[in-house]
Write a protein that binds this DNA or RNA. Sequence first.
DNA 1: TGCATTATTTACCGGTCGTTCAGTTAGTAT
DNA 2: ATACTAACTGAACGACCGGTAAATAATGCA
Lengths: 202, 202
Amino acid sequence: MSELNAVPAPKKGRPGVDRQYVLDTAVTAFIEFGYDATSMGMIAERLGLSKAAVYHHYPAKAEMLGAALDEALGGLEGVLLEAGAHTGSAEERLSYVLRGAVHILTSRLPYVTLLLRVRGNTDVEREALRRRREFDRSVTALVAAARDEGSVRSDIDPRVVTRLLFGMINSIVEWYRPDGPESADQLANEVLAMALEGLSAT
Amino acid sequence: MSELNAVPAPKKGRPGVDRQYVLDTAVTAFIEFGYDATSMGMIAERLGLSKAAVYHHYPAKAEMLGAALDEALGGLEGVLLEAGAHTGSAEERLSYVLRGAVHILTSRLPYVTLLLRVRGNTDVEREALRRRREFDRSVTALVAAARDEGSVRSDIDPRVVTRLLFGMINSIVEWYRPDGPESADQLANEVLAMALEGLSAT
DNA sequence: TGCATTATTTACCGGTCGTTCAGTTAGTAT
DNA sequence: ATACTAACTGAACGACCGGTAAATAATGCA
């Protein structure tokens, strides 16, 4: 906890924009135009800097993407490490993880949005896809455990169930906006309700 | 029925590849690398032709995308025109349309895959997004009607319900493969079951 | 055979891309 | 003042992009 949160800022040399601001500007542009269609020149323009200045903060365009994807994946993987993911029945653990995933989606919206658009055309993207599949595998195991427990329907393959579940959850990035009328907690409740009980009136 | 299905092939002049083959090759590449990252040269290479030859069949890269998106949107809009979309209770009509959407997703998989990745950076993409939103609006109306009927839960906004529903359904393009072990009909049954009854054991 | 028609190729254009490099500017520390 | 350091600039690079023009090749038909 001592050095992980340590971001003291060196205080030497000419002041300028910081790495995080550069990254967020790039990510915003990546989302707006797509990664490939976003040029370094556009990012530089939005920062009010020259194209070469961007390379002072990140050595390559792909490294900016990599840093963004790491933010998203770190958040999701973090949920699996929390106590709630290992406490109680399989159904309780599954609910905890799904709710945690919704929380990461909303709190790190731009990064996760980028992650969900990655298709694996470069090494950076393939590594991100690998970690994402790993996360999916953990949740699939939770679904299978909940099914063995008798708390989740057993007529559909757990892998299909998990994919449909994440199809629903991940779609949040397509339309959720933090400044909208709906709070993140309320959204999580609605998503969990739809996922568990479905569309039909009870 | 007379001229719509009429694709007789003129039978005159030098033989060559036909438009549909060019389009399908382009769409496959678009999906694999992304639209922007796919160059006309790559499409030409896969066709075994020169870059200029591709321009003989389609006047621009964007028109290939437009033709593909039209295939997807035409299919979805067609579901709303079928008799089943206007027959019976709102719940029955909704089920019919959802099942129809799954059918189009699986039967026109590459085209719909492309449609679901469109972000609206060009005129062609913006027009496609407009038609897609129109389709969504029709389904939202069906959900609202089913809620008024009492057959669909009333504790969640119909717009949120519809978005989550299509989040689940649309995710099919991310993992469904026609040559896999699962038939399209079986998949449709599972998706409908998850959407209507949810995850929980009954 | 020759003509119309369709398909395709070679060569090229202007422009944009990600990236690099040598040098300059604006601050802090002594 | 002077030294040091991080932040930044302008110009250029080779590669590749979407698209075009004009010539050529291959077919059916008269």
